[in-house]
């Protein structure tokens, strides 16, 4: 509830006055440039959305992947090779098709939308990874964006991306995936950085407001921990 009111309050403030600028996160800056180059060169953008079930606690990371996909698709619809989204969960693949269709429609090019742009490539971690690798290898992608719920199998996708000389951006809500991605991917989003994607890709004032709300909540939690430590040291707790 605190988070909700904080976010709503900041969003209302943001509608009237400009919010403070965001700190620079290098991977997002590089992603914007890479997308521009890729679209101009007529290369494909591949979005790996992971295996997050939409009814599980991992759904949030899948929503972030879908949001980023929509933002990228709006820019990339003009490319000769439309973006392709791969997922390891059937319901997520349906949502990716729907989101891509929505992005095409918003750009007024719905007739160019193809259902094969949003694919289920496998339902086990490794079959999903292998299916995503075949998209990277066979369909000549130039950028691979890996955002969602992944396990350690994501290193196979990141490795294929690097072997093809592609630009890549990766982030996951799983610690194991974050660790292997740090070693294997060119640009990795650690911790909550992935959840800030919408704010950095200019998805609206509510995204920026939620980012400031997250920061405020984090400081409140840190303050709470410090107070707890002090009270413990003083023998009150």
């Amino acid at each position: 509830m605190v988070f909700f009111f904080l976010m709503s309050g900041i969003a209302l403030y943001g509608n009237k006055r400009p919010l403070p600028p965001l700190r620079s996160i290098n991977p997002f800056t590089k992603l914007g440039k890479s997308i521009g180059i890729s679209v101009e060169a007529g290369k494909r953008i591949h979005l790996a959305l992971g295996r997050g079930l939409i009814t599980s606690v991992n759904a949030a990371s899948s929503y972030i992947g879908l949001n980023v996909m929509q933002r990228i698709a709006r820019v990339a619809t003009v490319s000769d090779r439309p973006p392709v989204a791969t997922s390891g969960d059937a319901s997520l693949s349906l949502l990716s098709q729907d989101s891509l269709k929505s992005a095409y429609r918003s750009m007024g090019v719905q007739s160019q939308f193809n259902l094969s742009s949003g694919r289920l490539t496998g339902v086990t971690p490794f079959s999903y990874a292998v299916g995503a690798i075949s998209v990277i290898n066979d369909e000549e992608s130039a950028i691979d964006v890996m955002l969602g719920n992944f396990g350690s199998e994501v290193v196979l996708i990141a490795d294929a991306s690097e072997r093809n000389g592609n630009a890549s951006l990766a982030g996951s809500d799983q610690l194991l995936a974050q660790a292997v991605l740090y070693a294997s991917s060119e640009d990795t989003l650690i911790g909550e950085e992935m959840f800030a994607a919408g704010a950095y890709l200019k998805s609206g004032v509510l995204h920026r407001a939620s980012l400031y709300a997250q920061d405020t909540m984090r400081w409140l939690i840190i303050l709470g921990i410090l107070i707890g430590v002090l009270l413990k040291l003083m023998g009150i707790l």
Partner: peptide, 22 residues
């Protein structure tokens, strides 16, 4: 950080700011 980010993402979907259903 991930937990706070997940809460924010969930709230954005509830407020219809994010529409993963297209």
């Amino acid at each position: 950080g991930v937990a706070l980010g997940s809460v924010a993402a969930g709230l954005r979907v509830l407020l219809s700011s994010d529409r993963p259903y297209g």
